[in-house]
Protein backbone atom coordinates (compact mmCIF):
# COMPACT_ATOMS: atom_id res chain seq x y z
CA UNK A 1 0.00 0.00 0.00
CA UNK A 2 3.01 2.26 0.68
CA UNK A 3 3.62 2.41 -3.05
CA UNK A 4 0.12 3.69 -3.69
CA UNK A 5 -0.06 6.48 -1.14
CA UNK A 6 1.11 10.02 -1.84
CA UNK A 7 4.29 11.32 -0.22
CA UNK A 8 4.05 13.62 2.79
CA UNK A 9 5.20 16.58 0.69
CA UNK A 10 2.52 15.96 -1.96
CA UNK A 11 -0.14 15.64 0.72
CA UNK A 12 0.94 18.88 2.37
CA UNK A 13 1.03 20.74 -0.95
CA UNK A 14 -2.49 19.57 -1.92
CA UNK A 15 -3.83 20.34 1.56
CA UNK A 16 -2.40 23.87 1.57
CA UNK A 17 -3.36 24.84 -2.00
CA UNK A 18 -6.86 23.34 -2.07
CA UNK A 19 -7.45 24.25 1.57
CA UNK A 20 -6.60 27.88 0.79
CA UNK A 21 -8.98 27.98 -2.17
CA UNK A 22 -11.85 26.87 0.07
CA UNK A 23 -10.84 28.68 3.24
CA UNK A 24 -10.26 32.13 1.72
CA UNK A 25 -13.91 32.71 0.70
CA UNK A 26 -15.15 31.41 4.07
CA UNK A 27 -12.71 33.57 6.06
CA UNK A 28 -13.42 36.74 4.07
CA UNK A 29 -17.15 36.08 4.21
CA UNK A 30 -16.93 35.90 8.00
CA UNK A 31 -14.84 39.08 8.01
CA UNK A 32 -17.49 40.77 5.84
CA UNK A 33 -20.22 40.11 8.42
CA UNK A 34 -18.14 41.74 11.19
CA UNK A 35 -17.71 45.02 9.32
CA UNK A 36 -18.96 48.17 10.96
CA UNK A 37 -18.22 51.53 9.30
CA UNK A 38 -14.51 50.97 8.74
CA UNK A 39 -14.05 48.94 11.91
CA UNK A 40 -15.32 45.56 13.03
CA UNK A 41 -18.12 44.67 15.42
CA UNK A 42 -20.84 42.13 15.99
CA UNK A 43 -23.57 44.56 14.93
CA UNK A 44 -24.76 42.56 11.88
CA UNK A 45 -25.05 39.39 13.93
CA UNK A 46 -26.85 41.22 16.72
CA UNK A 47 -29.26 42.75 14.20
CA UNK A 48 -30.66 39.31 13.40
CA UNK A 49 -32.20 38.97 16.85
CA UNK A 50 -32.91 42.70 17.27
CA UNK A 51 -36.71 43.13 17.54
CA UNK A 52 -36.49 46.61 15.97
CA UNK A 53 -35.09 45.16 12.74
CA UNK A 54 -37.52 42.29 12.42
CA UNK A 55 -39.73 43.88 9.79
CA UNK A 56 -36.76 44.08 7.40
CA UNK A 57 -35.91 40.41 8.00
CA UNK A 58 -39.50 39.21 7.86
CA UNK A 59 -39.03 37.62 4.38
CA UNK A 60 -36.21 35.46 5.75
CA UNK A 61 -38.29 34.13 8.66
CA UNK A 62 -41.22 33.48 6.31
CA UNK A 63 -38.88 31.81 3.83
CA UNK A 64 -37.23 29.76 6.53
CA UNK A 65 -40.61 28.61 7.83
CA UNK A 66 -41.61 27.63 4.29
CA UNK A 67 -38.31 25.81 3.78
CA UNK A 68 -38.80 23.90 7.05
CA UNK A 69 -42.30 22.87 5.96
CA UNK A 70 -40.89 21.80 2.60
CA UNK A 71 -38.17 19.76 4.32
CA UNK A 72 -40.74 17.89 6.40
CA UNK A 73 -43.02 17.13 3.43
CA UNK A 74 -40.09 16.20 1.16
CA UNK A 75 -38.66 13.83 3.77
CA UNK A 76 -42.16 12.38 4.17
CA UNK A 77 -42.27 11.74 0.40
CA UNK A 78 -38.85 10.04 0.58
CA UNK A 79 -39.79 7.87 3.57
CA UNK A 80 -43.42 7.10 2.71
CA UNK A 81 -43.35 6.89 -1.10
CA UNK A 82 -39.79 6.24 -2.30
CA UNK A 83 -38.55 3.90 0.47
CA UNK A 84 -41.60 1.55 0.61
CA UNK A 85 -41.58 1.32 -3.19
CA UNK A 86 -37.89 0.40 -3.13
CA UNK A 87 -38.57 -2.32 -0.54
CA UNK A 88 -41.45 -3.62 -2.66
CA UNK A 89 -39.36 -3.63 -5.84
CA UNK A 90 -36.47 -5.44 -4.16
CA UNK A 91 -38.74 -8.03 -2.52
CA UNK A 92 -41.35 -8.77 -5.12
CA UNK A 93 -40.21 -7.34 -8.46
CA UNK A 94 -36.46 -8.01 -8.72
CA UNK A 95 -36.74 -7.70 -12.50
CA UNK A 96 -37.80 -4.07 -12.07
CA UNK A 97 -34.66 -3.20 -10.11
CA UNK A 98 -32.69 -1.88 -13.10
CA UNK A 99 -35.56 0.13 -14.61
CA UNK A 100 -36.38 1.50 -11.16
CA UNK A 101 -32.80 2.59 -10.63
CA UNK A 102 -32.87 4.31 -14.02
CA UNK A 103 -36.01 6.27 -13.09
CA UNK A 104 -34.71 7.15 -9.62
CA UNK A 105 -31.45 8.54 -11.02
CA UNK A 106 -33.11 10.23 -14.01
CA UNK A 107 -33.62 13.62 -12.31
CA UNK A 108 -29.79 14.10 -12.39
CA UNK A 109 -30.03 14.26 -16.18
CA UNK A 110 -32.95 16.68 -16.21
CA UNK A 111 -31.81 20.14 -15.10
CA UNK A 112 -34.13 21.85 -12.61
CA UNK A 113 -34.33 24.81 -14.98
CA UNK A 114 -35.79 22.48 -17.65
CA UNK A 115 -38.14 20.79 -15.19
CA UNK A 116 -39.47 24.18 -14.11
CA UNK A 117 -40.60 25.00 -17.67
CA UNK A 118 -42.89 21.95 -17.51
CA UNK A 119 -43.77 22.37 -13.83
CA UNK A 120 -45.25 25.85 -14.41
CA UNK A 121 -48.44 24.56 -16.11
CA UNK A 122 -48.68 21.63 -13.65
CA UNK A 123 -48.53 23.98 -10.67
CA UNK A 124 -51.37 26.03 -12.19
CA UNK A 125 -53.50 22.90 -11.83
CA UNK A 126 -52.03 22.02 -8.41
CA UNK A 127 -52.79 25.58 -7.24
CA UNK A 128 -56.41 25.21 -8.28
CA UNK A 129 -56.94 21.84 -6.58
CA UNK A 130 -54.61 21.89 -3.55
CA UNK A 131 -54.16 25.63 -3.09
CA UNK A 132 -50.93 27.60 -3.35
CA UNK A 133 -49.57 26.68 0.08
CA UNK A 134 -45.79 26.54 0.32
CA UNK A 135 -45.85 22.81 1.05
CA UNK A 136 -47.08 21.91 -2.46
CA UNK A 137 -43.60 22.69 -3.82
CA UNK A 138 -42.42 19.57 -1.99
CA UNK A 139 -43.88 17.46 -4.82
CA UNK A 140 -41.25 18.93 -7.12
CA UNK A 141 -38.53 18.69 -4.46
CA UNK A 142 -39.30 15.01 -3.91
CA UNK A 143 -38.22 14.51 -7.53
CA UNK A 144 -35.04 16.61 -7.28
CA UNK A 145 -33.85 14.81 -4.12
CA UNK A 146 -34.72 11.33 -5.45
CA UNK A 147 -31.28 10.46 -6.90
CA UNK A 148 -29.55 11.55 -3.68
CA UNK A 149 -32.03 9.71 -1.46
CA UNK A 150 -32.04 6.58 -3.65
CA UNK A 151 -28.35 5.74 -3.22
CA UNK A 152 -28.15 5.51 0.60
CA UNK A 153 -31.46 3.62 0.81
CA UNK A 154 -30.36 1.15 -1.88
CA UNK A 155 -27.00 0.69 -0.12
CA UNK A 156 -28.85 -0.10 3.13
CA UNK A 157 -31.14 -2.56 1.31
CA UNK A 158 -28.14 -4.29 -0.29
CA UNK A 159 -26.43 -4.57 3.10
CA UNK A 160 -29.23 -6.58 4.75
CA UNK A 161 -31.02 -9.72 3.67
CA UNK A 162 -34.40 -8.25 2.88
CA UNK A 163 -36.05 -11.52 1.80
CA UNK A 164 -34.95 -13.54 4.84
CA UNK A 165 -35.96 -10.81 7.27
CA UNK A 166 -39.39 -10.33 5.77
CA UNK A 167 -40.04 -14.08 5.47
CA UNK A 168 -39.01 -14.58 9.10
CA UNK A 169 -41.32 -11.80 10.21
CA UNK A 170 -44.19 -13.07 8.04
CA UNK A 171 -43.83 -16.66 9.25
CA UNK A 172 -43.94 -15.42 12.84
CA UNK A 173 -47.33 -13.94 11.99
CA UNK A 174 -46.48 -10.28 11.37
CA UNK A 175 -48.69 -8.43 8.91
CA UNK A 176 -47.04 -6.62 5.99
CA UNK A 177 -47.29 -3.16 7.62
CA UNK A 178 -45.82 -4.58 10.84
CA UNK A 179 -43.03 -6.27 8.87
CA UNK A 180 -42.08 -3.04 7.11
CA UNK A 181 -42.47 -0.81 10.16
CA UNK A 182 -41.06 -3.02 12.93
CA UNK A 183 -38.56 -5.25 11.12
CA UNK A 184 -37.36 -3.72 7.85
CA UNK A 185 -37.36 0.00 8.71
CA UNK A 186 -35.19 -0.40 11.86
CA UNK A 187 -32.70 -2.44 9.83
CA UNK A 188 -32.63 0.18 7.08
CA UNK A 189 -32.30 3.02 9.56
CA UNK A 190 -28.81 4.28 8.58
CA UNK A 191 -29.85 4.49 4.92
CA UNK A 192 -33.18 6.13 5.70
CA UNK A 193 -31.48 8.63 8.00
CA UNK A 194 -28.85 9.55 5.40
CA UNK A 195 -31.49 9.91 2.70
CA UNK A 196 -33.52 12.21 4.97
CA UNK A 197 -30.55 14.39 5.93
CA UNK A 198 -29.36 14.77 2.34
CA UNK A 199 -32.92 15.69 1.33
CA UNK A 200 -32.96 18.34 4.06
CA UNK A 201 -29.68 19.81 2.79
CA UNK A 202 -30.89 19.88 -0.83
CA UNK A 203 -34.25 21.46 0.06
CA UNK A 204 -32.55 24.09 2.22
CA UNK A 205 -30.41 25.22 -0.73
CA UNK A 206 -33.04 24.99 -3.47
CA UNK A 207 -33.59 28.19 -5.43
CA UNK A 208 -34.30 27.44 -9.10
CA UNK A 209 -37.78 25.95 -8.85
CA UNK A 210 -38.99 28.23 -6.03
CA UNK A 211 -37.90 31.44 -7.71
CA UNK A 212 -39.24 30.64 -11.18
CA UNK A 213 -42.59 29.45 -9.80
CA UNK A 214 -42.75 32.68 -7.72
CA UNK A 215 -42.73 30.86 -4.39
CA UNK A 216 -40.99 32.01 -1.21
CA UNK A 217 -38.38 29.84 0.43
CA UNK A 218 -35.18 30.58 2.31
CA UNK A 219 -33.12 31.16 -0.84
CA UNK A 220 -35.56 33.51 -2.57
CA UNK A 221 -35.88 35.39 0.74
CA UNK A 222 -32.08 35.80 0.95
CA UNK A 223 -32.14 37.44 -2.48
CA UNK A 224 -34.99 39.77 -1.47
CA UNK A 225 -33.32 40.82 1.78
CA UNK A 226 -29.89 41.22 0.15
CA UNK A 227 -31.28 44.10 -1.91
CA UNK A 228 -31.79 46.16 1.29
CA UNK A 229 -29.28 44.63 3.70
CA UNK A 230 -26.42 42.71 2.11
CA UNK A 231 -24.93 41.82 5.49
CA UNK A 232 -27.99 39.98 6.81
CA UNK A 233 -28.07 37.65 3.79
CA UNK A 234 -24.41 36.81 4.29
CA UNK A 235 -24.93 36.15 8.01
CA UNK A 236 -27.76 33.75 7.18
CA UNK A 237 -25.59 32.15 4.49
CA UNK A 238 -22.92 31.38 7.08
CA UNK A 239 -25.53 29.98 9.46
CA UNK A 240 -26.89 27.74 6.70
CA UNK A 241 -23.35 26.63 5.82
CA UNK A 242 -22.69 25.69 9.45
CA UNK A 243 -26.03 23.88 9.68
CA UNK A 244 -25.37 21.82 6.52
CA UNK A 245 -21.87 21.01 7.76
CA UNK A 246 -23.16 19.67 11.09
CA UNK A 247 -25.82 17.72 9.20
CA UNK A 248 -23.23 16.04 6.98
CA UNK A 249 -20.86 15.31 9.88
CA UNK A 250 -23.83 13.52 11.48
CA UNK A 251 -24.29 11.56 8.25
CA UNK A 252 -20.57 10.66 8.21
CA UNK A 253 -20.65 9.56 11.84
CA UNK A 254 -23.78 7.50 11.23
CA UNK A 255 -22.17 5.82 8.22
CA UNK A 256 -19.03 4.95 10.14
CA UNK A 257 -20.99 3.66 13.12
CA UNK A 258 -22.98 1.46 10.75
CA UNK A 259 -19.79 0.11 9.18
CA UNK A 260 -18.32 -0.72 12.58
CA UNK A 261 -21.46 -2.48 13.67
CA UNK A 262 -21.58 -4.55 10.55
CA UNK A 263 -17.95 -5.59 10.91
CA UNK A 264 -18.28 -6.86 14.48
Amino acid sequence: MRLLTASKATRAAVAVLVGAFFLIPVVFTVEYTFRDKGGHSLVHWANIVDPAKQSAYQPIWTGLANSLTLMVVTVAIVLLVLAPTMILVNLRFPKLRRPFEFVALLPISIPAIVLVVGLAPIYLVVGRSLGTGAWTLAFAYGITVMPFAFRPIQAAIDAINLTTLSEAARSLGASWPATVWRVLAPNLRPGLLNASLISVAVVLGEYTIASLLNRQNLQTALIVVSRQDGYASVVFTLLALAFCFVLLVVIGRGGNAGKKRRRS
Binding site: P25, A240, L248
Partner: peptide, 27 residues
Protein backbone atom coordinates in the same frame (compact mmCIF):
# COMPACT_ATOMS: atom_id res chain seq x y z
CA UNK B 1 -11.52 11.63 6.09
CA UNK B 2 -14.81 12.21 7.92
CA UNK B 3 -14.17 15.96 7.83
CA UNK B 4 -13.36 16.04 4.11
CA UNK B 5 -16.31 13.77 3.26
CA UNK B 6 -18.67 16.05 5.19
CA UNK B 7 -17.14 19.22 3.70
CA UNK B 8 -17.37 17.83 0.17
CA UNK B 9 -20.98 16.92 0.76
CA UNK B 10 -21.80 20.42 2.03
CA UNK B 11 -19.94 22.29 -0.69
CA UNK B 12 -21.17 20.10 -3.57
CA UNK B 13 -24.81 20.48 -2.42
CA UNK B 14 -24.50 24.01 -1.08
CA UNK B 15 -27.14 26.30 -2.50
CA UNK B 16 -25.92 28.35 -5.44
CA UNK B 17 -27.40 31.57 -4.10
CA UNK B 18 -25.45 31.35 -0.87
CA UNK B 19 -22.31 30.50 -2.86
CA UNK B 20 -22.81 33.66 -4.92
CA UNK B 21 -23.13 35.71 -1.70
CA UNK B 22 -19.89 34.27 -0.39
CA UNK B 23 -18.03 35.28 -3.53
CA UNK B 24 -19.58 38.75 -3.53
CA UNK B 25 -18.46 39.19 0.09
CA UNK B 26 -14.98 37.87 -0.68
CA UNK B 27 -14.05 39.54 -3.93
Amino acid sequence: RTLIDALSGVLAQFGGVMLAFMFMATI
